[in-house]
Design a binder for these strands. Sequence first.
DNA 1: CAATATTGTTGCCTTTGGCAAGTATATCGC
DNA 2: GCGATATACTTGCCAAAGGCAACAATATTG
Lengths: 314, 314
Amino acid sequence: MPRDVPTQTLPHDTIENMRALNRIVTRASGVLNRTVLNSDLSLSEMRVIYELGREDWAARALAQQLGLDEGYLSRILKRFADRGWLERRPSPEDGRVSLLSLTEKGAECLEEFEEIARSNVSESLAALPLAEQPALDRAIVRLRLALGDKTLRLDEVIFRDIEIGDLGWMTQRHGELYRIENAYDQSFEILVAEIIIEFLKTRDPMRERAIVPVCNGLPLGSIFCVQGPAPETAQLRLFGLEPSLRGRGLGRQMMEEWLRFARGAGYKQATLWTHESHAAAGRLYAAAGFEITGTEATRNFGQDVVVQQWEMTL
Amino acid sequence: MPRDVPTQTLPHDTIENMRALNRIVTRASGVLNRTVLNSDLSLSEMRVIYELGREDWAARALAQQLGLDEGYLSRILKRFADRGWLERRPSPEDGRVSLLSLTEKGAECLEEFEEIARSNVSESLAALPLAEQPALDRAIVRLRLALGDKTLRLDEVIFRDIEIGDLGWMTQRHGELYRIENAYDQSFEILVAEIIIEFLKTRDPMRERAIVPVCNGLPLGSIFCVQGPAPETAQLRLFGLEPSLRGRGLGRQMMEEWLRFARGAGYKQATLWTHESHAAAGRLYAAAGFEITGTEATRNFGQDVVVQQWEMTL
DNA sequence: CAATATTGTTGCCTTTGGCAAGTATATCGC
DNA sequence: GCGATATACTTGCCAAAGGCAACAATATTG
C-alpha cells in the first residue's frame, strides 16, 4: 500500500459524510449478517461464488482478488465441489494450477442468490419516489467513480445528444468548476445557460449538435458544434469534462466525435475561443489540428484572462 | 419487518448499480477485515464502542440496535470494562439494568479509532480532484436520504440564498421532475433558466430573494420571492422540493420563510401562478392563506394544463 | 406471595478464518 | 540433467467470532 502518497487534505465534513454512508450502506446491504439472508452461505462464500460467476479463476488469483486466506479458500472450494457447483480443469500450461468454473448447477444457485440480493436492495430503496431515481443513479455512479470502481468501464461510455435536464447540469457544472478552478463569478454560469438556451431555440439539428458522454446515466462532460461567424465555419463551444476523468483519453474521443460531426455536416473550417489558463484543453485542440490565431488580454467573469482564438481547416 | 409493503418495481439497472456500490463501499471501508486496521478490535467491537460514544445505552437495547447476540455483547462489554473503557451504573428505575457509558479513557481510545477510520476514508478518496468534492458530497447525501439514513436530520436543514451552481441545478431538477411527473417538454426547462437569469441580473437583494433549503451541501428545493405586477405585490415563483422530502413539513417551513421575507421587505399583497395538477403545492398555498382568484385552461410545455392564479394579503 | 416475564451472564458449541507445515509441480543455475 | 528454489495449492492445527440455551437476579402481575 502506498503509505507515503502525499495525503490530500479532504475536509472533515466530506470524510464524516462518507463514513456515515459507509455505515448506512453496510447495514442496508446486510454485510454484517454472518450468513447471507435465506442462503446458508457465509459472506466469504457468497463473494467467492459471485466472483466465479463473472469469470473463471485460478485459486491463488481469486484469493488475492477477494483478500481471502488461501487455505480457507481451498476449503470453500472443496465444499462447492462437493455440492456439485464447481468444476476444476487442470491448467494446460501449469500442472499445479486448476482452472475453476461454476457448473450449470452452480450458476443456477448463484442466480437464486442474486435474485435475493436484488430484492434486498429493492426493499432498502422502497421508499424512493420514482421521480428521484435518475438522480439516485447519477449519485451512485459518481460515487463509484470517486471510489475507483474498476467494474465501471470507461469504454462503455456512450455519446448522446442533449436531453431535458442537460441545460441545467451543464450550467451547474460549468459554473461550479470554473468557480473552483478559475474563481469566475456567477456571470459565467449565466453566460453558459444563455449559450445553451440560444442553441436549443435556434439550432438546425443537421448542422449543430451537442455531444454528451454518459456513463451509466451520469453525464461526464459536453462538447458543442454550432455554426460560426461564416456558414462554412464550425464553432466548438462548451467543451468540458469532469475533473476526475481528465487525462484518460475521453477528451480525445469527444474531440474525434466532434470532428466527425463537423466534417459530416459539411463545414470546411473550424474555430473556437478559449482562455489561456486551460492548458490541458489547449493540448487537445492542438492535437486535433487547431492552431492559435490570436490572443487578447481582457477582463471577464471577475478575473483577468487571456482569450485565445484557435482555428483549423477541416 | 413489513414484508407485504407493495413492492415498487425499481428498474434492474438501478438495482445492479446499487449492488455495485455496495460491493465497492464494502471493500473500500474495510468491513471485511476481521480486525479493523491498526486496532485490535473486531468489527463488532468497533461498532459497539462507536455506538457507546454517541450515547449511553442499556445492554439489551444496544444489542438490538446493532443486531448482536446478547451473550456475545455481554462478553464484549466485559472486555471493555476490563480495559477500563466502560462504566456501568445501575439504573435507578430497574435493578436488572446497567447503564453503559464510556469512561474518559474509553472516549480517548474511540477518538483514536475514529482518526484511523477517517484517514482510511481519506485514502480511499485520495485520487479525487478537489474540484469534484462538492458534487461528491451531494451524491453522498442523496444516497443517505434515499437509504433512509436516520442520522441525517431534517431539522438540520439550513436556508441560504442563491449561489453559483444553483441556476444550473434548479434548472435541471425543475426540467427533469416536470418531465417525469407532468411530461413537460424542454421548453419548460428553458423557461426556468430564463426566469432565474432574469432574477440574477435585475434583482434588488432587499426586495427579492431566493430561499434554498440545504442539507449537508445538497440543495433540496427552492422558493423565490420577486416583485410582482405592482410594487406592493410579492410574487412567489419556482417553488420546488425533492420528491422524497415532500410531506415532511419542509415545504411548510419554506413557505413560512418566504412569508417572513415578503412581509419584511414591505410587500402588502402576494400572488402566484401554478398549475392545477400540483395538488400538494396547492394545499400548502391554501394553508399559508392564498386563495384561488382565477383559472384558465391553456396549452403549455407540450401539455394541456389548467393555470391557476392565487392571491393573498400579507 | 407465587407465577411469569425481563435483563443480563455464563457455559457450551459450531463456524470462521488465520498460520504454518506439507505436497506437487515449475523454473533456474550450474 | 539435476539439485535448489519458487510457486500453487492442500491440510492440520488453532484462536477468535458468535449463536444458543440454561441460569441468576430483579420486575411485574394476578
